Lab assay of single mutants.
Amino acid sequence: GNIFIKNLHPDIDNKALYDTFSVFGDILSSKIATDENGKSKGFGFVHFEEEGAAKEAIDALNGMLLNGQEIYVAP
């Protein structure tokens, strides 16, 4: 299952995104959108192997604080 994450703190990188979401299941890919200079655009995507893991991550993390910013997590 794919999920979309927005309002990410600029310091959150691909590894931090992966580490945050990997507790919910096996991740096939995770990516933070960046500009041409490699600076985070504040949103990203995680693709879980299983749909159930994606739903669990959405339920658990939507509205949670990550590096002091409330993140939005949705399908």
Results as ranks from 00 to 15, higher is better:
Gly1Asp: 03
Gly1Cys: 04
Gly1Trp: 03
Asn2Glu: 00
Asn2Ile: 01
Asn2Cys: 00
Ile3Val: 10
Ile3Phe: 01
Ile3Ala: 04
Ile3Cys: 08
Phe4Leu: 02
Phe4Ser: 01
Phe4Gly: 00
Ile5Arg: 00
Ile5Pro: 02
Lys6Gln: 02
Lys6His: 03
Lys6Asn: 02
Asn7Phe: 08
Asn7Lys: 14
Asn7Arg: 15
Asn7Thr: 06
Asn7Val: 04
Asn7Gly: 09
Leu8Tyr: 01
Leu8Ser: 02
Leu8Lys: 01
Leu8Phe: 11
Leu8Trp: 01
Leu8Met: 11
Leu8Ile: 14
Leu8Ala: 04
Leu8Glu: 01
Leu8Cys: 05
Leu8Gln: 01
His9Pro: 14
His9Ser: 09
His9Val: 14
His9Thr: 10
His9Lys: 08
His9Glu: 08
His9Ala: 09
Pro10Phe: 14
Pro10Thr: 15
Pro10Asn: 11
Pro10Cys: 13
Asp11Glu: 09
Asp11Gly: 08
Asp11Pro: 03
Ile12Phe: 05
Ile12Val: 07
Ile12Gly: 00
Ile12Arg: 01
Ile12Ser: 03
Asp13Cys: 09
Asp13Gln: 06
Asp13Thr: 06
Asn14Ile: 06
Asn14Phe: 03
Asn14Cys: 06
Asn14Lys: 04
Lys15Ile: 05
Lys15Glu: 03
Lys15Ala: 06
Lys15Trp: 07
Lys15Gly: 07
Lys15Thr: 05
Lys15His: 08
Ala16Tyr: 05
Ala16Arg: 04
Ala16Cys: 15
Ala16Phe: 05
Ala16Ser: 15
Leu17Cys: 12
Leu17Phe: 14
Leu17Ala: 07
Tyr18Ala: 10
Tyr18Cys: 07
Tyr18Arg: 13
Tyr18Asn: 14
Tyr18Lys: 10
Tyr18Glu: 04
Asp19Tyr: 10
Asp19Cys: 12
Asp19Pro: 02
Asp19Leu: 08
Asp19Glu: 15
Thr20Arg: 04
Thr20Met: 09
Thr20Lys: 05
Thr20Ser: 15
Thr20Asp: 03
Thr20Val: 07
Thr20Pro: 02
Phe21Cys: 11
Phe21Met: 14
Ser22Leu: 15
Ser22Phe: 09
Val23Gly: 06
Val23Thr: 09
Val23Glu: 10
Val23Gln: 06
Val23Pro: 05
Val23Phe: 07
Phe24Ala: 02
Gly25Ala: 06
Gly25Ser: 06
Gly25Arg: 00
Asp26His: 11
Asp26Ala: 12
Asp26Pro: 07
Asp26Ile: 08
Asp26Gln: 15
Ile27Asn: 00
Ile27Met: 03
Leu28Thr: 06
Leu28Trp: 08
Leu28Lys: 06
Leu28Glu: 02
Leu28Ala: 05
Leu28Ser: 08
Leu28Tyr: 06
Ser29Thr: 02
Ser29Tyr: 01
Ser29Ala: 03
Ser30Val: 05
Ser30Pro: 04
Ser30Tyr: 06
Ser30Trp: 06
Ser30Arg: 02
Ser30Ala: 08
Ser30Glu: 04
Lys31His: 03
Lys31Leu: 06
Ala33Val: 12
Ala33Leu: 02
Ala33Ile: 05
Ala33Tyr: 01
Thr34Phe: 08
Thr34Pro: 10
Thr34Ala: 13
Thr34Met: 15
Asp35Gly: 14
Asp35Gln: 10
Asp35His: 13
Asp35Ser: 15
Glu36Thr: 15
Glu36Tyr: 14
Glu36Ala: 14
Glu36Leu: 10
Asn37Asp: 13
Asn37Cys: 11
Asn37Thr: 12
Gly38Ala: 12
Gly38Leu: 15
Gly38Gln: 11
Gly38Thr: 07
Gly38Asp: 10
Ser40Ala: 11
Ser40Cys: 06
Ser40Asn: 15
Lys41Gly: 04
Lys41Tyr: 06
Lys41Ile: 04
Gly42Trp: 04
Gly42Ala: 12
Phe43Ile: 03
Phe43Thr: 02
Phe43Pro: 00
Phe43Cys: 03
Phe43Ala: 03
Phe43Val: 03
Phe43Arg: 03
Gly44Lys: 00
Gly44Trp: 01
Gly44Cys: 06
Gly44Ser: 04
Phe45Ser: 01
Val46Phe: 02
Val46Asn: 01
Val46Leu: 04
Val46Tyr: 00
His47Thr: 01
His47Gln: 07
His47Asp: 02
Phe48Pro: 00
Phe48Ile: 04
Phe48Arg: 00
Phe48Ser: 00
Phe48Ala: 00
Glu49Leu: 09
Glu49Val: 12
Glu49Gly: 13
Glu49Gln: 13
Glu49Ala: 12
Glu50Gln: 14
Glu50Ala: 13
Glu51Ala: 10
Glu51Asp: 11
Glu51Pro: 12
Gly52Leu: 09
Gly52Arg: 12
Gly52His: 12
Gly52Glu: 12
Gly52Asp: 13
Gly52Thr: 09
Gly52Tyr: 09
Ala53Leu: 10
Ala53Tyr: 11
Ala54Gly: 12
Ala54Thr: 06
Ala54Arg: 06
Lys55Ser: 11
Lys55Glu: 13
Glu56Thr: 11
Glu56Arg: 06
Glu56Ala: 09
Ala57Asn: 01
Ala57Pro: 02
Ala57Gly: 06
Ile58Arg: 11
Ile58Cys: 14
Ile58Gly: 06
Ile58Leu: 11
Ile58Tyr: 08
Ile58Gln: 13
Asp59Ile: 08
Asp59Lys: 09
Asp59Tyr: 10
Asp59Ala: 11
Asp59Glu: 15
Asp59Pro: 06
Ala60Asn: 11
Ala60Gly: 08
Ala60Ser: 11
Ala60Pro: 01
Ala60His: 05
Ala60Asp: 08
Ala60Arg: 05
Leu61Gln: 04
Leu61Ser: 07
Leu61Thr: 07
Leu61Pro: 03
Leu61Arg: 05
Leu61Met: 06
Asn62Met: 15
Asn62Leu: 12
Asn62Val: 08
Gly63Pro: 02
Gly63Asn: 09
Gly63His: 09
Met64Trp: 09
Met64Ser: 06
Met64Gln: 10
Met64Thr: 07
Met64Arg: 06
Met64Asn: 08
Met64Gly: 08
Met64Ile: 11
Leu65Pro: 12
Leu65Gln: 11
Leu65Thr: 15
Leu65Glu: 13
Leu66Glu: 08
Leu66Pro: 05
Asn67Met: 06
Asn67Ile: 11
Asn67Leu: 08
Asn67Thr: 13
Asn67Tyr: 06
Gly68Trp: 06
Gly68Pro: 03
Gly68Thr: 08
Gly68Arg: 13
Gln69Gly: 13
Glu70His: 15
Glu70Lys: 15
Ile71Gly: 00
Ile71Ser: 03
Ile71Asp: 02
Ile71Tyr: 03
Tyr72Pro: 00
Tyr72Arg: 08
Tyr72His: 06
Tyr72Thr: 05
Tyr72Gly: 05
Val73Thr: 08
Val73Met: 09
Val73Pro: 01
Val73His: 01
Ala74Cys: 15
Ala74Val: 09
Ala74Phe: 03
Ala74Ser: 08
Ala74Gly: 15
Pro75Ser: 14
Pro75Leu: 13
